[in-house]
Design a protein around this nucleic acid. Structure first.
Length: 271
DNA sequence: GTCCATGTTCTTTA
DNA sequence: CTAAAGAACATGGA
């Protein structure tokens, strides 16, 4: 699914279309995607305008004109796309949100075959929760403090949304490659230079991925249904046994934190 | 049939 | 209590 760059791209495509628009209708095809379960979304949202739309971690957060907030998380296979009023929903479309006037309404479709995603009501005072800081504005010194507290492999730590928000399996692997760090290196053993490299690598990787509108491996498209192209520029992710783009060594694949990890055994020495 | 998949959370184990 | 490992969730494609 979408990690930070994909979610950022979706928000970028939806924001100008939805900003200030009034929610006219809401159709729920599956009730189990709503959290808390049973919350009456239609009663809370219909008639209200969208006053803000932004990304936080991998969440797409909506603010409405009575200061209530909710967010959509796309899980592994979710899509959030803008369709015309005539478009019939595809299979596994669980929620339709209709915006705008009766003359030219736009409909946002939430589609998610695996249903790991959903919609979460936050109310007027969204709690900070346990989500970690945004990587694009994080300082290396702050990352150092957080990594010093865990003895897990660095790959596991990067996937922990409480430690840093928005990085998933693709961008963790790509960032570790750019930083020249083996995914099994224990987080608390990284020195200042390595943490600087890692912080720089995470930011560079995420910015490049946003520039290319994310990675489309399978399901991901933006709000206009367009695919990303960053998958063409991956250095290591899903490239096991292919040559490293830097040194031509055959890339490795290993299961870490229950996820496949891809790395170059030469450029990312374990030491 | 088997294995694997861009994620998160709960349970189990130490 | 903490930290880490593993399973679970649901669907589809190779």
């Amino acid at each position: 699914m979408p990690e930070l760059p994909e979610v950022e791209t979706i928000v970028h495509s939806l924001r100008p279309r939805l900003f200030g628009q009034r929610i006219r209708g809401l159709t729920l095809h599956r009730t189990d995607i709503v959290h808390p379960f049973g919350f009456d979304l239609a009663a809370a949202l219909i008639g209200h305008r969208v006053t803000d739309l932004f990304r936080r971690g991998k969440r797409i957060v909506f603010q409405v004109d009575d200061d209530n907030h909710f967010f959509i998380h796309l899980g592994m296979s979710g899509r959030l796309t803008i369709q015309s009023a005539e478009t019939s929903p595809r299979k596994h479309t669980h929620l339709l949100l209709t915006f705008g006037g009766k003359r030219s309404p736009i409909v946002v479709h939430f589609t998610d075959p695996r249903r790991f995603g959903g919609i979460w009501w936050l109310g007027t005072d969204p709690p900070q929760g346990t989500m970690g800081p945004e990587p694009l504005t994080l300082r290396a010194s702050q990352l150092a403090t957080r990594l010093a507290k865990t003895k897990r492999p660095i790959k596991n730590a990067l996937l922990d949304q409480r430690l840093i928000a928005g990085v998933g399996n693709i961008y963790a692997d790509e960032s570790l490659f750019l930083a020249g760090l083996h995914p099994l290196r224990l987080a608390h053993t990284l020195n200042a230079d390595e943490i600087n490299r890692l912080m720089h690598a995470i930011k560079l990787t995420l910015r490049r991925a946003i520039h290319h509108k994310g990675s489309t491996l399978r399901d991901y498209v933006d709000g206009d249904g367009k695919r990303g192209s960053f998958q063409l520029r991956h250095n290591v992710y899903d490239r096991a046994d292919e040559p490293c783009r830097k040194c031509h060594t055959s890339l490795s694949r290993m299961v870490i934190a229950g996820r496949s990890s891809h790395f170059c055994p030469t450029c990312q020495p374990r030491q």
